[in-house]
């Protein structure tokens, strides 16, 4: 580099905006070669980043819905009849036992998703070893944690459906009162997000049946598992809101 000493000097003031400096290795995601064939560690990092960003917007959706819930709950409305403001919020009688069972199901599925994630990390780590001829590491696949997660996820959704039926039996329909509207809405929006997660998990399962490279599967399972944990946390938040802020 000494022979290529710069003949001009780009001023480095406070307002410089960069100025001259040797390229900083890794300073700006170096070597990020787009969608082509980046290495798997990088792909994983990028997808995790995207997941975090995507979950921010999911969070915004739920923040707006929950703040609408809280505002609406405290909001009086002008009553023609009495000429005064009245409160018309009717607390919904939630089927608590059923919802607790659902919560347990989702907690279990979050746990199995984590086990699936760790399992596939191990598999990915051992994949190079396995490719050495003559090295045997026992059975190819371990316990089907992924499948169990899907089953538990369906269990949760079925449970939510039963909870809706229960609510309807108690006379709380979507349009019955503001509170019941919000209960249906929040659970439905959460459910839609879970269905999305299940579809991705099913995709991961199909991919594993097709014997795709384990690194690719690992990325799908890893990101979906984090998504799944987030959905579990989100459910706890929604459940707490609906129960404690009735």
């Amino acid at each position: 580099m000494a022979t290529l000493s710069p003949t001009i000097r780009v001023q480095q003031t406070d307002q410089g905006g960069g100025g001259t400096a040797p390229p900083i290795p890794g300073g700006g995601g170096d070597g990020g070669r787009g969608d082509g064939y980046p290495d798997h560690g990088q792909r994983l990092r990028r997808l995790r980043l995207a997941l975090a960003i995507g979950l921010t917007s999911v969070t915004m959706i739920f923040i707006s819905l929950t703040s609408a819930y809280i505002v609406r709950r405290g909001l009086p409305t002008f009553d023609d009849h009495t000429g005064t403001y009245i409160q018309d919020w009717i607390p919904v009688q939630l089927p608590l036992a059923l919802l607790l069972i659902n919560t347990a199901l989702l907690a279990a599925s979050s746990l199995t998703a984590e086990l699936a994630r760790r399992q596939i990390i191990r598999q990915a780590a051992l994949a190079p070893v396995r490719s050495i001829p003559g090295v045997s590491l026992g059975r190819e696949s371990g316990f089907p944690w992924l499948a169990l997660t899907v089953v538990l996820g369906f269990g949760f959704l079925t449970g939510q459906w039963l909870a809706w039926r229960e609510l309807a039996d108690r006379g709380f329909y979507l349009a019955t009162s503001a509170s019941s509207s919000f209960v249906y809405l929040l659970t439905a929006v959460h459910g839609v997000h879970l269905i999305g997660g299940i579809l991705v998990l099913l995709y991961a399962a199909v991919v594993s049946l097709l014997h795709r490279p384990v690194e690719g599967r690992r990325i799908v399972v890893d990101v979906t598992a984090w998504y799944w944990h987030f959905m579990f946390g989100l459910w706890l938040g929604i459940f707490a809101l609906l129960w404690f802020v009735r």
Partner: peptide, 10 residues
């Protein structure tokens, strides 16, 4: 004038 700005003025 080659200048990147003036922090004091800003």
């Amino acid at each position: 004038e080659y200048s990147h700005g003036n922090t004091k003025l800003e």
